[in-house]
Simulated scan of single mutants.
Amino acid sequence: MEQLIGDTPGSPGSLEWLAQAYAYPSGAGRWLRANMVASLDGAARLDGLSEGLSSEADKRIFGVLRALCDVVLVGAETVRAEGYRPGRVRAEFAERRAAAGQLPAPVIAVVTRSLELDLSAPLFTEPLVPTVVITTVDAPAGKLARTAERADVITAGTGSVDLPLAVAALTERGWRRQLSEGGPRLLGQLAADGLLDELCLSVAPLVTAGDSPRIVNGPQIPHARPMRLVSLIEEKGFLFTRYLRPTEPDRSPSDPALT
């Protein structure tokens, strides 16, 4: 693994090195980053799943980003398709999380309007920390009651989930280090609402064609939002990029409350 842009000290590829390379910005308050993978021609999935686009290094970074965050924000469609499981404890990050006042594992927060969820799945029956479900105020009462028996429910918006309200509710619980893992429609909504502070995009050296969605899937944003490249890592032809909003501060690993 080699860092082509950026100057992270240490041994490239090690967990400690990756934790520094992807440390949350110091003093940033609430920070929402997205982690996605795409093919060279922009596909967000291969054969319906992101797995086919991934690599060993991509999975290593995926695990580090989870270990650094307070909460993982994910759409219900992705939960169903990818068979999501609860966040787990990473022994290598236990002291770091404790020092930062974080829970032992990240919270998984599922965004869903329909509440079409398998409440018998491990995500709801075996979480170390309670899974959160974010839905609408006018969600079906029966489904809402059943979901509340297995998860911590947040209601935000009527008709469709109001993501600014949802993100604010997560922040109020002290979960400031936020990570979105998609899918593309959720990321499209987050981008359209101006909530995306950072994009970590893994680019797979594959050309897939087909009709897979882009990583951000939704109506065109009225004003294209520029991003600033702050890190570029390469391994076996895969590129791991990190983009920040251009007006945001540089990443600094010196703040233990955010690293």
Rank of each mutant, 00 (worst) to 15 (best):
A141L: 13
S120D: 15
P127H: 02
K143M: 07
V132M: 11
E126K: 02
T125I: 01
L119D: 06
T147G: 04
R146L: 12
V153F: 10
D138C: 14
S114F: 02
V132Q: 10
V161A: 00
P140I: 12
E116G: 08
G157I: 04
P140W: 11
L123P: 06
L123C: 03
S160Y: 12
D162K: 11
A166C: 00
L165R: 08
T125V: 03
P106C: 15
A151V: 10
P164E: 01
V110R: 05
A141Q: 15
L128Q: 00
T131M: 05
P130A: 09
A145N: 13
K143E: 07
T136A: 06
T112V: 03
D152E: 15
T147Q: 08
A166D: 02
G159I: 12
T135F: 07
T131P: 08
I134P: 07
T147M: 02
R113T: 12
T155H: 01
L128T: 02
S160G: 12
P104R: 06
A121M: 01
S160M: 15
L165T: 03
L103V: 14
G159P: 13
T135N: 04
A109K: 07
L119P: 04
A166K: 01
T147F: 02
L117G: 06
E149S: 14
T125K: 06
V153H: 11
F124P: 05
A166T: 04
T112G: 04
T136Q: 10
L119C: 00
A156F: 09
A105I: 00
G157S: 01
A148K: 10
P106R: 14
A141G: 14
A151S: 14
I134M: 14
I134R: 13
P106I: 12
R113K: 12
L117E: 07
T136S: 08
T135L: 07
D152P: 06
V137Y: 14
G142N: 15
V137E: 15
T131K: 05
E116I: 09
D118L: 08
V110E: 06
T135G: 08
V110D: 07
P164M: 07
L115I: 05
R113H: 05
D162H: 10
A145T: 13
A139T: 06
A109C: 09
T136D: 04
P104V: 01
D162F: 03
D138T: 12
P130R: 11
E126I: 00
P127G: 01
G142T: 11
V161I: 03
A139V: 02
A139P: 05
D138H: 09
G159D: 15
V153P: 11
